[in-house]
Simulated assay, not measured.
Amino acid sequence: MPTPPRLSIIIPTLNEAAIIEATLTHLQAARAAGAELLVVDGGSQDDTRARATPLASRVIESEPGRARQMNAGAHAARGRQLLFLHADTRLPPGAEAAIAAALAEGRDWGRFDVRLTGRHPLLPVIAFAMNRRSRWTGIATGDQGLFMTREAFAAAGGFPDQPLMEDIEMSRRLKRRSRPACLRERVTTSGRRWEQGGAWRTILLMWRLRWRYWRGASPDDLARAYRHVR
């Protein structure tokens, strides 16, 4: 039986045909070094799966919903360490070694700093604020490339089956085991959310939704509000 990989990279997708090939091509060096690449598709209506298949270790179909897709990928993964990566996010050089070193030092989970790509002048400020807030609170977002041991994932019960804030809730659960390893190496993530929705409008929307979540609002209600505004 083949030796299980140390790291499994899990990418949830939904209609990402325009970018999935570039994302997976960027990860081929990690795959050649032994990482497992799992694409978990939530029912794309374009040719995401066809484009991903030659470049991934496996392409899995799942019920739609980022949390459900990431959980399905984790259950199918063979690696001892799990990295959850958005389809529009790219890893920095040496990411696999940085993850291994952070987890070997006794942390159960962590995330990278983030850099946002795009033309809007506020994007560097937004990324700085995201990274600083994450260090202060110990809460990470999916844009930052969440990684963890398989044991930590299981102890947390996986990502909560909710349509929004699943990364926030997962961070809360993982913090019960350890503070996150906040790596200064930066993943590069598309700033399309802020550019398409308007930078200030999106910032205010996300802060308002987070505030309501901390006050106990239903994730289903928050998801409806998010979709309505977008």
Rank of each mutant, 00 (worst) to 15 (best):
G198R: 00
S171V: 08
G34H: 01
P160G: 02
G118M: 05
A140Y: 03
A152L: 13
S171C: 10
T23A: 15
E16V: 04
V40T: 08
R80T: 05
S134D: 15
G138E: 04
K175A: 11
P54Q: 10
R135Y: 05
Y213P: 11
L164D: 05
D113C: 07
G145Y: 06
I11A: 10
R111M: 12
T53N: 02
Q196R: 14
T137H: 05
E151Y: 11
I139C: 07
L222V: 01
R150S: 03
A100N: 10
G216E: 02
D221M: 06
D220G: 14
M165D: 09
R212K: 10
R186I: 01
D41K: 02
R177D: 04
D220V: 15
P2T: 11
R68H: 10
V40G: 12
G106T: 02
A140L: 02
R230N: 10
R208S: 13
G191E: 08
G94Q: 09
L7A: 05
T189A: 12
P160C: 00
A217N: 00
R208N: 04
P2V: 11
P12F: 04
R107L: 14
T188I: 06
G106C: 07
L14A: 14
S218P: 10
T53F: 08
R133H: 14
I60A: 06
R6N: 07
P12V: 12
D161I: 03
R212D: 03
T25R: 15
D47V: 03
D88S: 11
A76E: 11
G110A: 01
G158F: 05
P121N: 00
E63V: 08
E61Q: 13
E96A: 05
H26T: 08
E105P: 00
E105C: 01
G157R: 00
G142S: 09
L183T: 13
R135T: 06
L7S: 05
N131V: 08
E195R: 09
H228C: 14
Q69I: 05
A217F: 06
R227P: 01
R132P: 02
R210I: 06
P180Y: 04
M170C: 05
D220H: 15
G157L: 01
P92T: 03
I126D: 04
R115S: 04
T189H: 15
F112M: 00
I11M: 15
A97Q: 09
G118K: 02
A140E: 02
E185H: 10
